[in-house]
Simulated assay, not measured.
Amino acid sequence: MIIEVISDTLSDALIAQEAGADRIELVTGLGEGGLTPSYGVIESVCRKLTIPVNVMIRPHSRGFCYSEEDIEIMIQDIKVCRKLGAAGVVFGVLTSDYQVHTDHLKRLIDASKGLGITFHRAIDDAEDQFAALKIIKQHPQISRILTSGGQKSAIHATERLKRLNELTANSPMKIMAGAGLTANNIKMFIEKVPVNEIHFGSGVRYHSSYEHAISPEKIQAIKNIADL
């Protein structure tokens, strides 16, 4: 089981790594759902960590429908992430009517050559998750899809997530479940949804809040359950 942890600072990323996290999703603007961090943060985290670091590519928090100017900025951010040593990038793009934006997606994929790609929870805003999955699966460069199954918490979408996982079973693309998962509910969740990758945010922080630091004890508890 791969455990990915959201971090927005070098100190949190180091704590997560030491506690046993397998990968970091590096962001800023946690209260806005995650935005592209500064180049200084990207460089320092990628240089000092030994586990993979995937960087959020999101220029603003006004949804996932982007202008031409936004896409050009995202492409430049991807290029910088490659230079700074990121293992991968994280993005998602939709049209104004909540379909996967195929042109924007292709351009971002082309810019990400040599990097791992995660299509993030923009898929949870898609009008039809299964139609979105069908489009995303046409791009083998995409390593995984982060999703809560269209619900605020993945716990409330176990049947949807199980089906999404089944639809990717014979492809190199993985479903990574995230949102609302904690050490208290992860055992029940993975018994119902046998995914190989889990994404944690506030669930591994003290007081379950982004206002507080990452708790190594919570990550270790999750690792102990996931490794059973």
Rank of each mutant, 00 (worst) to 15 (best):
Y98C: 09
Q99G: 04
V100H: 04
H101P: 06
T102I: 02
L105R: 00
L105N: 01
K106H: 14
R107H: 14
I109V: 15
I109K: 06
I109T: 05
A111D: 01
K113N: 05
G114S: 09
G114W: 08
L115V: 06
L115H: 10
G116W: 09
G116C: 06
I117L: 03
F119T: 03
R121N: 08
R121K: 13
A122R: 02
I123E: 01
I123K: 01
I123W: 02
I123Y: 03
D125F: 12
A126V: 05
A126P: 00
A126Q: 00
E127P: 02
E127Y: 09
E127A: 12
D128M: 03
Q129K: 03
F130K: 03
F130D: 05
A131K: 12
A131R: 10
A131P: 04
A131F: 01
A131L: 08
L133C: 07
L133P: 04
I135T: 15
I136D: 00
I136T: 01
I136C: 06
K137V: 04
K137N: 10
Q138K: 14
H139S: 11
Q141D: 13
I142E: 00
S143D: 13
S143C: 14
R144H: 06
I145C: 09
T147Y: 03
T147E: 10
G150Y: 11
K152E: 14
S153K: 14
S153E: 15
S153M: 11
A154W: 12
H156S: 14
A157F: 08
A157N: 13
T158E: 15
E159T: 15
R160A: 13
L161A: 10
L161F: 09
K162E: 12
R163E: 15
R163V: 12
L164P: 02
L164C: 11
N165R: 08
E166V: 02
L167K: 10
T168Q: 05
A169M: 12
N170L: 13
S171F: 11
S171L: 10
P172W: 04
M173R: 09
M176I: 05
M176L: 10
L181G: 03
L181N: 05
T182K: 14
A183E: 14
N184P: 03
N185V: 10
N185H: 11
